[in-house]
């Protein structure tokens, strides 16, 4: 680890000031990706601003048709929240299957979404449900927020504070884990909300999370597992590595989409 400055602000405003004072500094949420890269000297930062002391960033509540999850809510908190389990049960299940107990107790939903790892689970859910992302400056739609591999629309001095998930009529998420990392080799989320049916894929995209319009229109006609069978995803848009070539990923997308539909009920 290279030396860096460390700040632990107690308000969002202080965090904002600290960010402005240290250009290039990074926000520390759960640190489950950032800390290992720092320890291995793969990343060199002027400063780290720990959001852990700011109160009110980790709440989970339901307001009418919206489930509001604070950015600092841990995966454990989401997995065990009565609000989440009632509003969008499969979202709690998704959180329950991230990493291992250590990761779930340190890692946060905001940290995961802001990191936008192409194999993370949350991006699929956020895009499928049409979540909106509240920051200390503005509100972004999921389409606006995700910008390819490890990139988001978040600006240099912007802090993600809440994620607003519309309470879906139906939502399901099916994941096939990379045997080594246990990240999603392929994860497919299916949601039916007031905005319609969405099918999203994580883990497989060469450019991160993406939607599958052909499956969406098929499910809009008939929301059943067999509606998605036989709908192929173009392998050119998929990633390929030692664990899964693009054709295997494409095949898994079909299998998992059907499973996600079944889970969505």
């Amino acid at each position: 680890m290279y030396a860096f400055d460390y700040r632990r602000p107690s308000t969002l405003n202080e965090a904002d000031l600290a960010l402005k004072a240290m250009p290039g500094a990074k926000l520390l949420a759960g640190g489950q990706t950032l800390i290992p890269t720092l320890k291995q000297r793969l990343n060199r930062l002027p400063g780290l601003i720990d959001l852990g002391a700011i109160t009110g960033l980790d709440g989970i509540s339901r307001k009418d048709g919206t489930l509001v999850v604070g950015a600092m809510a841990t995966h454990y908190a989401v997995a065990n929240s009565a609000e989440v389990k009632t509003a969008i049960p499969q979202l709690a299940n998704l959180a329950e299957n991230i990493g291992d107990p250590q990761v779930r107790n340190r890692g946060t939903i905001g940290g995961s979404l802001a990191n936008n790892d192409p194999a993370a689970d949350y991006p699929a859910a956020a895009l499928a449900l049409g979540a909106s992302f509240k920051t200390n400056k503005r509100s972004l739609t999921a389409e606006q927020f995700f910008k390819g591999l490890f990139e988001t629309a978040l600006e240099e001095n912007e802090i993600l504070t809440e994620i607003h998930f519309p309470v879906a009529k139906r939502f399901g998420y099916a994941k096939f884990a990379n045997p080594a990392s246990r990240y999603a080799l392929v994860g497919v989320a299916v949601a039916e909300t007031a905005g319609g049916v969405r099918v999203t894929v994580t883990g497989a995209g060469a450019d991160g999370v993406f939607r599958v319009p052909a499956m969406e229109s098929a499910l809009a006609k008939s929301f059943a597992a067999n509606s998605v069978s036989g709908i192929a995803v173009d392998t050119k848009m998929l990633g390929s590595d030692m664990h899964a070539a693009a054709d295997y990923r494409a095949h898994l997308i079909g299998v998992l989409a059907a499973r996600a539909v079944t889970l969505a009920g």
């Binding site: 080594a180 990392s181 990240y183 030692m242």
Partner: peptide, 11 residues
């Protein structure tokens, strides 16, 4: 070595 961490080397 492509499998130089537990992310890729499956124990």
């Amino acid at each position: 070595l492509v499998t130089a961490s537990f992310m890729d080397y499956c124990m």
